[in-house]
C-alpha cells in the first residue's frame, strides 16, 4: 500500500508542479492586442490574394478598406491584456497544496480501496493452480483453458478441457474443444464420447452427429486389446450418452434445460463405478478412473477417500501408485 501512496504523491506533486510552472510561465501580455494581429494578418492576406490574381481590383479595394477599418476599430478597443490586480501567489500556493489533500480525502471516502490488489487473470490462474483444493468448475475451466492455450498441440489437454467444460455446463464450448482435440488426434475414443455427450446435451437428444461420434468411439474401443479397462469405460460412457439422449427425448418440452441433467447423469455414472468397486474392488483401472472422476468433479473428500483406499490396496505397486497420483492431479 505504501507504493500506492508514493505513486499518488508523485501524481499530486506533478499536478502541483504543472500549476506552479503555468503561473511562472504566464508571461506579460503580448506586445500587440491579438485581435489587432488577426486583422493585420487579414489585410496581408487580402493583398496576397490580389497579387496572385485571385481577387479583382475592385474587390481588393473594398475588402482592404473594410479590413483596415476593422483593424482600426480593434486597435482603438485594444485591451491591455490582464489588468493585474495582484499576483494571487498565496491563493495559488494554497490551491496547489490543497488539491492533493482534497483528492486523497475524496479518493478514500468515495472512490478508493487503497489496499485492494490488482487481480490480472493470469495471476489468478497461477494461484488456482498452486492453491489446488476445492476449486469450482469455472476455475477449473479457466485453468484447463490456460493449460491448453500454452500447449495448443496437446490433445490430452484439450480432452481434459472438453471434459471440464462439459461438467461446467458449457456443452457448446466442450463440443468445439473436442473437435479441436480430434483434429489433432482423431483416434481417442474418449474424445468421441465427449463430443457425443456435448452434442447430446445441446440438442437434448442423440443427434445423427452424436450417434456418428458414438459409433467412432465404439469402433476405436473395439480395436483396443481385449480386457483393456478402457473398453469397459468407453462402453459405460456410450451408455450414459445414449441414456442422456433418451431422457432428453422423453421430456423435450417440459425440460428445455434438459442438458442440465447431464452432470447428474455423470454423477450417477461415477456413483455406479464406486458401487461396482465396492462389490469388486480388484479393478486397478477402475480405481484410477474413480479418483480422476472425483478430482474433475471437485469432490476432494470423496477423491481423498477413494485414493486412500486404492493406495492401501496397491501399496506395493509403484506403477499403480503413480497412476493414482496423476489421476489425483488431473484437474490441475
Amino acid at each position: 500500500m505504501i507504493i500506492f501512496w508514493i505513486a499518488a504523491a508523485l501524481l499530486s506533486a506533478g499536478a502541483g508542479a504543472l500549476m506552479l510552472q503555468g503561473a511562472v510561465r504566464r508571461g506579460p501580455a503580448l506586445a500587440e492586442d491579438p485581435a489587432v494581429s488577426v486583422h493585420r494578418r487579414q489585410l496581408a492576406e487580402i493583398d496576397q490574394l490580389a497579387e496572385r490574381g485571385l481577387l479583382s481590383e475592385t474587390d481588393h479595394r473594398a475588402a482592404r478598406a473594410e479590413a483596415a477599418r476593422r483593424m482600426l476599430d480593434a486597435a482603438e478597443a485594444a485591451h491591455p491584456g490582464h489588468h493585474v490586480e495582484s499576483s494571487g501567489r498565496l491563493a495559488l500556493l494554497i490551491v496547489a497544496a490543497a488539491a492533493p489533500l482534497i483528492a486523497a480525502g475524496l479518493y478514500i471516502t468515495v472512490a478508493g480501496a487503497p489496499g485492494t490488489p490488482d487481480q490480472p487473470f493470469m495471476a489468478r490462474v497461477a494461484a488456482w493452480k498452486t492453491g489446488g483444493a476445492d476449486l469450482g468448475w469455472p476455475e477449473r475451466v479457466a485453468v484447463a483453458t490456460v493449460d491448453s492455450q500454452r500447449n495448443p498441440k496437446d490433445p490430452a489437454l484439450l480432452k481434459q478441457l472438453a471434459a471440464t467444460q462439459l461438467f461446467a455446463d458449457d456443452p457448446v464450448s466442450a463440443e468445439a474443444t473436442a473437435q479441436r482435440a480430434l483434429a489433432l488426434w482423431p483416434k481417442d475414443p474418449e474424445v468421441f464420447t465427449l463430443l457425443a455427450a456435448s452434442l447430446t446435451r445441446q440438442a437434448g437428444q442423440v443427434t445423427p452427429q452424436a450417434a456418428s461420434a458414438l459409433e467412432q468411439a465404439q469402433r476405436l474401443a473395439e480395436a483396443l486389446p481385449p480386457g483393456d479397462p478402457t473398453r469397459e469405460r468407453i462402453d459405460g460412457q456410450i451408455r450414459a450418452v445414449a441414456s442422456m439422449g433418451a431422457e432428453g427425448q422423453q421430456e423435450p418440452q417440459a425440460q428445455p434445460d434438459a442438458g442440465q441433467v447431464t452432470p447428474a447423469r455423470i454423477r450417477q455414472m461415477v456413483e455406479g463405478l464406486a458401487a461396482r468397486l465396492k462389490a469388486n474392488p480388484d479393478d486397478p483401472k477402475g480405481w484410477v478412473m474413480l479418483v480422476k472422476a472425483y478430482s474433475v468433479m471437485g469432490e476432494t473428500a470423496s477423491r481423498d477417500a477413494a485414493l486412500a483406499e486404492a493406495r492401501k490396496r496397491y501399496a506395493g505397486d509403484k506403477a499403480m501408485l503413480d497412476q493414482l497420483e496423476q489421476a489425483k492431479d488431473v484437474s490441475r
Binding site: 503555468g22 491584456g81 490582464h82 493585474v84 488539491a99
Partner: peptide, 21 residues
C-alpha cells in the same frame, strides 16, 4: 484559478497548468 485569473496572470497560468494536469 482561471476565473480569478482574468486579471491575475499568475493565477490564469496556474489554471492552464491545472487544465494540463
Amino acid at each position: 484559478l482561471s476565473a480569478f485569473g482574468v486579471n491575475r496572470p499568475a493565477l490564469a497560468g496556474a489554471g492552464e497548468g491545472a487544465a494540463l494536469g
